[in-house]
Amino acid sequence: MNELDWSDILLRLAVATLAGGAIGLDRDFHGKPIGPKTLGIVSLSTATVVVLAVQFAEPGKISDAASRVIQGVLTGIGFLGAGVIVQGHRLRVHGLTSAACAFLAACLGIACGAGQWKIVLIALALALILLTVGRPVERWLHRLVGGEDQAEAPPKTRRPDVS
């Protein structure tokens, strides 16, 4: 058994919450229906179950039970992602980036729960860079190749966070 002390548990869960919240803050700034509270909770909840599973593993190893927990979390997060994507009776698909952010928040939570700080830091930094420069790069590429610029669709009204 790999008993974690209080400070290690607090660190893992707090960093997971902050990392998920940071991704959610970007979504909130862009008026998307998923924000820092929701993605912070996604990341915190996944970190919680991974910390629990890691408690019963040998030090430095992910047990079969922990592996099954991680697989279940990643499968279940698909339902949250589907809820973000399916927002109404429109024929267009919306919310894919927000759903991907929910999946990322879950993955960050898993990495925090396992105490993999380098992975958390690099993944969070890359995600925030991508979310910051992604739309301008998409617009530039669309203009370059002459494709339809999906980024110029009329702005959507922000839905309240229902969580």
Results as ranks from 00 to 15, higher is better:
K118E: 04
G83H: 06
I77L: 08
L126R: 06
L124D: 06
C112P: 01
G83F: 12
I77Q: 13
T48L: 15
S67K: 09
G81L: 03
L141S: 04
C101K: 09
G83P: 08
G146C: 03
L124W: 10
R68T: 12
A102M: 07
V84Y: 07
I85E: 10
F103W: 13
I119G: 04
D149G: 03
L130N: 10
A65T: 08
G95Y: 10
A125G: 04
A114E: 00
P59M: 05
P59R: 01
Q87A: 12
R143P: 00
L131F: 09
G72Q: 02
Q71D: 14
Q87V: 04
V133I: 15
R68P: 06
V93D: 09
L80Q: 05
G88H: 12
L121V: 11
V86L: 15
I119M: 12
P59W: 01
A105Q: 08
G95N: 09
R139Y: 01
I119K: 09
A114P: 00
R92H: 06
L108A: 01
V133W: 11
A82P: 10
G146P: 06
T48K: 01
L74V: 07
I119L: 15
L104K: 04
L52S: 12
A99H: 05
G134C: 08
Q87P: 02
V84L: 15
G147Q: 12
G72M: 03
G60N: 11
Q116P: 02
H94C: 11
A57E: 01
F79D: 14
T97D: 14
Q87S: 15
H94L: 08
G72S: 06
G109T: 14
A65E: 13
